Simulated scan of single mutants.
Amino acid sequence: MTHHLARDIRVLSETRGLERVAAGYAADAPSPPGWIKPGPAEVWIALSDQTWLRFVIAGEEIGGLWTLRLVLAAGLMLIGIAALGVWSARKVTAPLARFSLAAQRLGANVDAPPMSEEGPSEIRQAAKAFNGMQNRIRRLIEDRTLMLAAISHDLRTALTRLGFRTEFIADAEQRRKAAADLEEMQAMLQSTLMFARDDAATEPVTPVDLAMLLQSLCDDLQDAGQAVSYDGPPHLTYRGRPVSLRRAFANLIDNALKYGQEAAVTVAEKNNAIEITVGDRGPGIPESMRSRVFAPFFRLESSRSRETGGVGLGLTVARTVVRRHGGDITLDDRPGGGLLVRIVLPASPAVNP
């Protein structure tokens, strides 16, 4: 410290003709151990008359500089350690982030691109196992689809033969009932096959005006004399699968009209998400049954009869479509009575092109 101090004073004194400058500690100054320096420090400057001008600098002045250096060194060390820790943590968690993204893609689309098998040997092995699992799931779904197609062909052939045979029933009333049963069986078979094939998963993702899609559904039903209303923005661009979204919202609005006599549709953007609600004035659904109504073929017999209802796949299909877009669907009580179906879609949907 005194060496730098003497150098600085010498530089400043050269313009004054002062050539002899010295700095240091007094000979009798104590030398305690550790970071504490002896003091006070002294600076000697030789004058032209051969006398010396002596400056004494308090010890705490120089000690403060040492403290500053110590603090700066410790701060730089901490910054380096923190940067190294962040870099190490990212190196460790980056493969986990890739696995999480791959799992999300697989949940939305079983035909999503496989994971890249890169990185350390453990990561490559895990990625290879994940891709193998995805291939097995894909083959399982393909086998199921082929099996359902074969069953569908056989059942339709049998139903066609039964349809011809009903024409030979003498009793007109029984013939009408048999024809109605066959019609219902064909509708159930068609709905079941459409749900099992899940054609929505292969539909490409495109920009769609979600507000216009809902307004068109409401306008068509209003023209048919149904009690349907729309409240929301005139336009709302969204990236999704338009056919599957239209099918999902049509199912929800049809349910509201069948079992609640009206359908009030609202659309709003909230917290980086899009919220769509469909409300009716029907008897509603008990809270204990709200999770079960999304199961395939499940019905509430007390309020949703076979004469007025479908085959029990409307809510199932709607939730499947919404979840494929990264959102979710819930059921609540509507203020004033009735059921309120709430759909929340992320503004940036986690769907795969």
Rank of each mutant, 00 (worst) to 15 (best):
A102N: 01
T15W: 07
A41H: 02
A129M: 10
P30E: 15
A129H: 09
D154I: 08
T67Q: 12
R124P: 00
A83N: 05
A27D: 09
I62K: 07
G85L: 02
R16C: 10
R161G: 13
S48H: 07
L70S: 15
R69C: 12
A158D: 13
R20W: 01
A46V: 03
D143I: 04
L148G: 05
M147T: 15
A46K: 06
G39P: 03
R139A: 15
L78F: 00
P113M: 10
A97V: 05
F130N: 05
L146E: 12
E142K: 10
G64K: 13
T145Q: 04
I45R: 04
P120L: 05
P40K: 01
M77K: 08
E118R: 15
G24C: 01
I57H: 08
I123W: 05
V43M: 02
A126Y: 04
V110F: 07
A126C: 07
S116R: 11
S152G: 14
F130H: 07
I137A: 12
I79Y: 01
I81Q: 00
W87I: 02
L159E: 00
A108Q: 06
Q50K: 14
L155T: 09
Y25V: 05
N109D: 14
F130G: 09
A41P: 03
I62R: 02
E61R: 13
A112L: 07
R90T: 04
I36P: 05
R69S: 15
N135S: 14
A112R: 03
A94D: 14
T67P: 03
E60G: 15
I137R: 11
Q50T: 13
A97K: 10
G85N: 04
P38Y: 01
P40A: 07
A46W: 01
A23G: 07
E60C: 07
S152Q: 09
P33M: 01
Q104R: 10
I45D: 05
W66G: 08
G80Q: 00
A97I: 00
D143S: 14
A149Y: 08
G85W: 07
L53H: 12
L72I: 12
L101F: 01
G63V: 03
A46L: 09
R139K: 15
M115F: 00
I45N: 03
G80F: 06
A23S: 13
I79H: 06
R161V: 12
R144F: 05
L78W: 09
G119K: 04
R105I: 03
E122Q: 09
L159K: 06
I57C: 11
G17C: 08
A126G: 10
G132N: 13
R105Y: 00
I123T: 11
